[in-house]
């Protein structure tokens, strides 16, 4: 269990994290989402005491990180792709960490095996690929068999196999009753991995809800209806107080804020023939973009779905 209470971090005038309050519960994967610069990494650094909060607190099982007697046995974190000294072997890196927290050094070989690095364990970390470095970071996080796991962009640099492996790993860690917080840019991946979402923008909490609820709240959830009498149907639906947009094709409409049966019943009552009536579920990406549209720190100018051409030099 991680508890954030009014957690804030300012750098001079800039507030990177603003009064973040929430509880990250055990037994489920909590996805941590936000645009670039929203404060995800800073929040994770505050949780493990690398940065000091300007106000508020981050507690692990009710205690600040610095008070933990054996921190690696309570919190495992992957925060940085550069996991170890480039001149040190992965085995020596993990052995040092194990000794620091009274973890039996026999555990080192077990975690190396679990992340698939056994055969390269004695190579210097500087020779590792990004994906191998990421696996070493995950090995270090698992070393102390902790109840709380923080993974910042864990699939960076991993191949599709590795991505699937991280998904299964995070799911199984949560299934064992641990607290798992995962940040990622890959929203489709998050949609499959996470049970619960924490969405932040400009350091503020935008959503703290189950994945299904976040998606259900999106206006992208709609009913697609096709009718040869499209305009008449559109008027009927609009009169009933529904939001109606044109869909692709000459006969299509997208109806927001209604279910299929409502739209079907209205069409039937007015004697309008239908060619198609189907629900359209929003993707997490749509829900996310809608949530964060006002708070993105580094967006392209204009809209997010159309890029502005850069004028050529003459």
């Amino acid at each position: 269990m991680i508890t954030l209470d009014g957690l804030s971090k300012r750098y001079g005038e800039t507030a990177v994290v603003s009064a973040l309050s929430c509880a990250i519960a055990p037994g489920r994967v909590t996805g941590f989402l936000g645009p670039n610069g929203a404060g995800k990494s800073t929040t994770m650094r505050l949780i493990v005491g690398l940065d000091t909060p300007s106000a508020g607190s981050a507690l692990i099982g009710g205690q600040p990180y610095a008070r933990l007697r054996h921190p690696l046995r309570e919190v495992g974190a992957l925060l940085d792709a550069r996991a170890g000294h480039p001149g040190r072997s992965a085995r020596a890196h993990l052995r040092g960490l194990a000794r620091s927290n009274g973890i039996p050094t026999g555990r080192v070989d077990l975690v190396l095996e679990a992340v698939g690095l056994s055969e390269v364990a004695d190579r210097r970390v500087g020779t590792y690929s990004l994906g191998m470095g990421q696996r070493l970071g995950i090995a270090a996080a698992l070393l102390g068999d902790p109840e709380v796991l923080l993974f910042d962009e864990p699939v960076n640099g991993l191949d599709p196999d590795g991505v699937a492996w991280v998904r299964r790993l995070t799911r199984s860690l949560a299934a064992e009753g641990r607290t798992v917080l995962v940040s990622s840019h890959l929203l489709s991946e998050m949609q499959e991995t996470a049970d619960h979402l924490l969405v932040i923008g400009r350091g503020r909490l935008l959503a703290d809800a189950p994945v299904d609820e976040v998606i259900a709240a999106s206006s992208g959830n709609a009913v697609l209806v096709r009718s040869p009498e499209r305009d008449a149907l559109g008027t009927v639906l609009a009169d009933a107080g529904l939001t109606v947009r044109q869909a692709s094709g000459a006969d299509g409409l997208l109806v927001g804020g209604a279910a299929c049966d409502t739209v079907g019943a209205l069409a039937f009552r007015h004697g309008l023939p239908l060619r198609e009536l189907s629900p359209r579920r929003a993707s997490l990406e749509e829900a996310f973009l809608e949530l964060t549209s006002g708070s993105a720190q580094f967006t392209t100018s204009e809209t997010t779905d159309r890029t502005t051409p850069i004028p050529r030099e003459r």
Partner: peptide, 12 residues
């Protein structure tokens, strides 16, 4: 090398 963070997390 980036191990300062790992060190501080191990010995806060």
């Amino acid at each position: 090398g980036g191990t300062a963070h790992a060190t501080l997390r191990a010995v806060p």
